[in-house]
């Protein structure tokens, strides 16, 4: 008789249930109508089942986004958990789509579902990848731009996990500043 360990049949639960969203830029529709929920998951195995099934970011058409957010948080500034928040923003050069985009996005997903920021993970709302012709962007959204300790910890761990060289600075910007900016750049509230 073969003894089967629970490891072999019980899925590994995640701390949070997550929702993956897809945004496709169709100018004939409203912004909200272009945003679709793909699926939710709350185990490691179901995360991989979903990830293995969908297109890599680098294969998406320009103007598309993936958003991974905690269940109950919508991937928009207006959500109660986002409206006082902000994001750590990684901007990629055009050349980095081939070299880094998919690797950085997967690393971002692993940071979220694995709760890589310890107790500061509670400040995380989600993450977004924007595929754009002028340069792709990846960001981790947190809930309150005044929570400096949490934000700085998240930024340091995230930068390390992505393998961003120490001399390269990444910035955290509040959604309010991003929404009301006048030029093409938003001022950083924090940098690491």
């Amino acid at each position: 008789q073969e003894i089967v360990s629970p490891e072999d049949y019980i899925k590994h639960p995640l701390q949070n249930r997550w929702a993956l969203w897809f945004f496709k830029n169709d100018k004939s529709k409203t912004w909200q109508a272009n945003l679709r929920l793909i699926s939710k998951f709350d185990t490691v195995e179901d995360f991989w089942a979903l990830y293995n099934h969908i297109q890599l970011s680098s294969n998406l058409m320009s103007g598309c986004d993936y958003c991974l957010f905690k269940d109950g948080i919508e991937p928009m500034w207006e959500d109660e958990r986002n409206k006082r928040g902000g994001r750590w923003l990684i901007t990629l050069s055009k050349q980095q789509r081939r070299a880094d985009l998919d690797r950085f996005w997967l690393e971002t997903l692993l940071c979220l579902v694995g709760e890589a920021f310890d107790d500061h993970s509670d400040d995380v709302c989600g993450a977004v990848v924007n595929v754009r012709a002028k340069g792709d962007k990846i960001s981790i959204w947190t809930t309150d731009f005044e929570n400096k300790d949490a934000i700085v910890h998240i930024g340091q761990v995230y930068k390390d996990r992505l393998g961003v060289p120490p001399k390269v600075i990444i910035g955290y910007q509040s959604h309010t500043d991003t929404a009301t900016k006048s030029g093409s750049t938003t001022k950083n509230k924090f940098v690491v």
């Binding site: 590994h12 639960p13 995640l14 701390q15 490691v44 195995e45 995360f47 991989w48 293995n52 690393e107 692993l110 579902v113 694995g114 709760e115 890589a116 310890d118 107790d119 993970s121 996990r161």
Partner: peptide, 18 residues
Amino acid sequence: GTRIIYDRKFLLDCRSSP
């Protein structure tokens, strides 16, 4: 309470298991 934390190696190892 306790937080369920998985490091990247564990998560990546789970990808290839059936």
